[in-house]
Write a protein that binds this DNA or RNA. Structure first.
Lengths: 210, 210, 210, 210
DNA sequence: AATGAATGAGCTTTCATTCAT
DNA sequence: TATGAATGAAAGCTCATTCAT
């Protein structure tokens, strides 16, 4: 793998594990076994690494958004689709853990994140509207935007919340439990049960969610 | 006011405004017009200031928890009570914006936060159980813990989410909108309407929430 | 002596000896036996040290300029006066050796130097005009500003020129030889000899100047 | 043009514009559109580029020195000759703006510059002696070496002095004004007027010089 | 001839913290 | 209680230079 890509990979891992503020460029370089100068040959600095990671996420989300109308035609398509999104949030979870530090980060990064969240908000609304048009969801107009936001809020913060309380679960377990959590938020508005072959209530998940 | 208390006050303000990482001990001292040495006479360091602020919040929450059974007897008592809690979260909002940095902070602080959130989780469950016992809420046993967590997740993160997207609203407006958001999460499970003299849907809130 | 003043003193010495670019803040601190942090406690950085030194020189020159009409009444007062100025140039000679680096330095410093030189230019003209009014100098109007500039040019650059060719002479010797050089530039325009008890042509100077 | 020559050309331009310290090898390579490695294939380093430029100047001066007796036979030949020299100083002006950095540069370069200046000093004396032998100049033996040095000092530093104060003039204007300045230094010692068809006092020069 | 990734020393600067007064 | 000079570790970053290809 190219050094540039390895830098992104290792940085993402370290950011997720220790937090942006705790990871210096020297730590990244040492962890990779390259010189600090080499890191600065590939990226102008820490900010550019973060910005690139945000762009990566953005691109993935754009791809997913574009595929949404094709992949999600029926009710049963929703859960695998949300699984994909939740996996993405998990992969880049460091970003949603430090809305604080974004205050101190470069305005460029802050703007990128804002745009990202606005797009996600739009996607969330779109999905709910689609469910209503499919006749699967029943929700008054006042509550709809609230529900859309709440779903996003929980998606973005669930992981760090859960990990803070108990970090014994694997990424895969966390992703599945997160989606179940979202299902539970939508369930009261559904016109039929949300059980699907994709998301059966297994014992593990029962335990994790409770 | 005693210097020690002023340090806490000023630190809280600065942490909320700029984030922990952006506020150095020198900035705090300068802002207060005292010497850095004096700050270290009153606190062993920055971590101790943060830890003390967490303790403050903890104490407030303990008080509120204890008053809960006395203050909240009936259905209508809920919203003013939740308003109080939401105001508290707003007051110490830097803590929940900062789960990233807490990862790197002293284990002592991390532990404190964990305990805090566990207590809040307990309080959230307790409140829902109480509502059920009052016959106001209807929720199966599986969904109950999920709902409790979701309420907490939204409470803790709503402020930073909203502020990131649009920072034109005042603290008071944000608190009220936050409570409304919580109401909307509970509403589908209620056996009667949530409208109360305390939380009428005013035009302002309509706009803010949408 | 206060640390702040010692920093200025040591920096001046090092700048004069090795040149601004060759002297890092760490070198200054190490040379003084203080920590790098302490240096930054007293000055915001290298630029501020340089700027302060320029201000020092500026102040000295303002004082001298103000004293000029009082001290220099007669022809014989000129040479000791120019000796004072030349000593000042020698003391801060690093400044006039690196008009190059000023290009890269902060615009604030560049502006200061510009102002400084403009003031010196004015002083140079003023002195020549005074000599003419005393009937000691005879010079047509066209040549006067040229002469004034040339005097300044030689004053400022003489030291580094001489040191580059041969650095065996002491500061005192260099100052005296520099003044003699200036005298030699004015001499052809004088109505009487420039010999004075203050600046007799000693053997040493003869040798140095040739 | 060969790469090697282009490196010298571009380096000279950049050194003159921004100063040695401000121009990194990477900047040179990027400006030329070649790789940093390639630059080091042609030169052992930055110092060698500078040293080569000094050698270039040296060679030009040797050529000029050799041509001096042939080209300068009469009084009127002087000004075009000095124009040539002044143009050379302008072309390599970064060298004389930079006596500071030379202090820190390799001893090799420092030695080269010393030799260069000693040669120029010799040329300056030689020219004055020639003028005397032509009966055009009258100057006692004591003042002669002083005058020779002063001419050189002004030649070398005039450009940076003028540019610092006001950078609106073109190279050609500066060269002409510089020569006029030298003429004004010699004029008091001349037995006849210095006016020549080559160096008439035009309005432009009048303004520039004043 | 030329590329461009890689090195590593060194620079400026910040900051939590200590300590003599 | 309070001051403020001093510390030293660590951060971000630059740059002349090397070297395998």
């Amino acid at each position: 793998m190219k050094t540039r890509d390895r830098i992104l990979l290792v940085s993402l891992d370290l950011f997720n594990r220790d937090g942006i503020a705790q990871v210096s460029t020297l730590i990244i370089a040492t962890e990779m076994g390259i010189s600090p100068g080499n890191l600065y040959y590939h990226f102008r600095g820490k900010d550019e690494i973060i910005a690139t990671l945000v762009t990566e996420l953005q691109n993935s989300l754009v791809t997913i958004s574009n595929e949404y109308p094709k992949q999600v035609k029926d009710f049963d398509d929703y859960w695998p689709f949300m699984h994909t999104i939740m996996a993405l949030f998990t992969h880049y979870r460091f970003l949603f853990r430090n809305l604080d530090n974004l205050n101190g980060q470069s305005p460029q990064i802050k703007r990128k994140i804002r745009t990202l969240i606005l797009k996600l908000r739009h996607l969330s609304s779109e999905m709910l509207a689609h469910l209503i048009s499919l006749g699967k969801l029943k929700c008054d107009e006042k509550s709809l935007p609230l529900l859309a936001d709440n779903l996003l809020l929980v998606s973005l913060n669930w992981l760090n919340y859960q990990t803070l309380l108990d970090d014994k679960y694997s990424e895969t377990e966390l992703i599945r439990a997160g989606v179940l959590r979202l299902i539970s938020m939508v369930e009261p508005y559904l016109t039929e049960s949300a059980d699907s072959p994709f998301y059966t209530h297994q014992d593990l998940l029962d335990e994790l969610v409770s």
